[in-house]
Nucleic acid binder design. Structure first.
Lengths: 210, 210
DNA sequence: CCGCATCCGTTTCGATACTG
DNA sequence: CAGTATCGAAACGGATGCGG
């Protein structure tokens, strides 16, 4: 059962693929990269993945020490899955894959998940000539995320932090469009696809203008 | 045949995995990372991969512009597979995966392939406090490879170059052991598992001593 | 031998339905 | 909400065979 087919190769690359090389595994890691998620949230983020598949992957990643699950205290009484410290170290792998895959054509009818847009947001902010400084909140799928720009670095963490410069509520697909074309910000606001609180105009992390 | 199942996800990570996420794909890329290889050489390097698997993967990678095949001029009259320029850019992905996978346990009865040991060699040489300077030849599986240390960088290219400081002939498994434990060098020579030409003592790129 | 195709048993994937 | 049960469709892995 847990005999995940091994490449039986002593190479570190093959050993990594023995753990995260199965279908969907790295996409599950991507969704957990910015914070814990529940089963149903993972399911929504990965529309093509069946429930059976998600269960298998989570168990397998858990048995390899990449993921762990935790039962939330009452009244939530639900289960969340999160990366272990070891799992978090896969960030570099995902960044490398994303860097390479960005020049591949987009599939037709493709979706944009929570983890996908957060990775995109962070990579753009980090690639900026002068990374944004400040603290912002973004609400996606009903969950708040903090964008922390400080000392030339940009981090994204789950949950809202006090003192945010502004708070933007939208959905992953809209945010993805805005990252690709920040000029559409006003239009997204007027059409109700995004709601801004606490400030006027597009937040600094969104604007590409030098 | 070329039914590459897509994740239908617009995220660059998923787009990369649409191309190189199938089983064996990245290990094929690993084997081609240091130079062209023929079908039978790939087969020897990947003992667990069946012939039809290799055929499928090579065709698929070729259709995605990662691999290309070339027919050697007579009298060789054989076919070699090599990475395209785009395929070569996967080096960073393999490095990241290898860096992560190095702390995973080695599988029992694992093999060591040509590409695996060359990646290992290069990563060790690059991680050295002062990378080796010089030109050496290593012969593995009957093929010569040049180790070029210059300006603090280390490159490995296929074929022998004139003026090498020394030439070491051995097999991937022995070389892997020597990289893990350079003290075994003399023993490997005396037992005939490695043959050294053109110099005395272990080549500089092998010695770990500061 | 090299590159590949074909056949076949086993494993995995993916969709739907169903249960606590 | 968080999975399990089931089942057909692929994909994998091994063996064999065929034309250069």
């Amino acid at each position: 059962m847990a005999t995940s087919r091994s490449y039986r190769d002593r190479c570190p690359v093959a050993r990594a693929l023995d753990v995260v090389g199965e279908r969907w595994a790295l996409l599950v890691v991507r969704e957990l990269l910015f914070g814990p998620q529940r089963f149903s949230e993972l399911r929504r983020a990965l529309p093509g993945a069946s429930t059976n598949m998600l269960t298998d992957r989570l168990r397998e990643l858990e048995s390899h020490g990449v993921v762990e699950h935790r039962t939330l205290p009452p009244p939530a009484a639900s289960t969340v899955y999160q990366l272990t410290e070891r799992g978090n170290k896969l960030e570099g792998v995902l960044d490398a894959l994303g860097g390479w895959g960005a020049s591949e054509p987009e599939p037709v009818g493709g979706s944009v998940s929570l983890g996908a847009v957060l990775m995109f947001l962070r990579s753009l902010a980090r690639a900026h000539v002068n990374p944004p400084k400040g603290l912002w909140t973004v609400i996606l799928e009903g969950q708040p995320w903090s964008i922390i720009g400080r000392d030339g670095t940009v981090e994204i963490s789950p949950g809202a932090l006090p003192g945010a410069d502004s708070q933007l509520e939208t959905d992953p697909t809209t945010l993805n469009s805005l990252l690709l074309d920040p000029a559409g910000f006003d239009s997204a606001i007027t059409h109700g696809r995004a709601v801004l609180h606490g400030a006027e105009g597009a937040p600094a992390w969104l604007s590409v203008a030098d």
